[in-house]
């Protein structure tokens, strides 16, 4: 690990100001990606801006058909929240499947989506449910927020403060985990929502994306696993690495989508 300065702002505004003042500073939330990266000396930020002392960034509220989760809310809190389990059980189950207990008790939803690891679980939940990302500056739809591998629409001095999830009619997440990291080799989040059927895929490509051919099949033939029989996903542009080939990932997308649809009921 290389040397860096450490800042612990008390407000979102202070944090944003610290980021604006130093282009080489990095935000640390739960640190589940950043700290190992620093340990491997793959990153050398000049400063770490720790969000841990900012009040009000963690917490879960359910109002009407909307579940709002603060950026600093840990995965374990979402997984064990009776309100989330009641409103969007698929989201609680997704959180319960992230990493291991240590990761779930340190990692945060804001950190996960701001990092946008192409194999992370939360981006699939956000995109699949059509969530709204609330930042220190504005509100963004998940479709606009995730822009590519490890990249988002966030500006350098912009922080995620909360995520608002609309309650779907039904939803489920099916993940084929990387056995080493528990990241998704392929994870598929399906949701039957007020604005239509959405299928979000993580792990397979350069970032989370919507599988439009699967959405079209489910919309045309109905929200049932059988509607995806014979529907294939192209392997073009999918990841091929030591964990799985692009062809196998393409196959798994349909398999996992069918399992998610079946689980959603």
């Amino acid at each position: 690990m290389y040397a860096f300065t450490y800042q612990k702002p008390k407000t979102v505004a202070e944090a944003a100001a610290a980021l604006a003042a130093d282009g080489d500073a990095k935000v640390v939330s739960g640190g589940q990606t950043l700290i190992p990266t620093l340990k491997q000396r793959l990153a050398a930020p000049s400063a770490l801006v720790d969000l841990g002392s900012i009040e009000g960034l963690a917490g879960i509220t359910v109002a009407g058909d909307t579940v709002t989760i603060g950026a600093m809310t840990k995965h374990a809190a979402v997984a064990h929240s009776a309100e989330v389990q009641g409103a969007i059980p698929a989201l609680a189950a997704l959180a319960e499947g992230i990493g291991d207990p240590q990761v779930r008790n340190r990692g945060t939803i804001g950190g996960s989506i701001a990092n946008h690891d192409p194999a992370a679980d939360y981006p699939a939940g956000c995109l699949g449910l059509g969530a709204t990302i609330v930042t220190s500056k504005r509100e963004l739809s998940a479709d606009d927020f995730f822009t590519g591998m490890f990249s988002t629409a966030l500006e350098d001095d912009e922080l995620v403060t909360a995520v608002r999830f609309p309650k779907p009619k039904r939803a489920a997440y099916a993940k084929f985990p990387n056995p080493a990291s528990r990241y998704a080799i392929v994870g598929v989040f399906v949701a039957d929502t007020a604005s239509g059927i959405r299928v979000a895929v993580t792990g397979a490509g350069g970032g989370v994306f919507r599988a439009t051919e699967l959405e079209a099949a489910l919309t045309a033939k109905g929200f049932a696993a059988g509607s995806l029989d014979g529907v294939t996903v192209s392997s073009d542009g999918l990841n091929s690495d030591i964990h799985a080939s692009a062809e196998y990932r393409a196959h798994l997308i349909t398999v996992m989508a069918k399992r998610a649809v079946a689980a959603a009921g």
Partner: peptide, 21 residues
């Protein structure tokens, strides 16, 4: 699952506890 892998240039692909299973 255990398999220490190298690429065609002989570079290790998972020789860290972070990536090895």
């Amino acid at each position: 699952f255990e398999h220490l892998r190298v690429d065609s240039a002989g570079q290790p692909l998972n020789a860290t506890p972070w990536s090895y299973r």
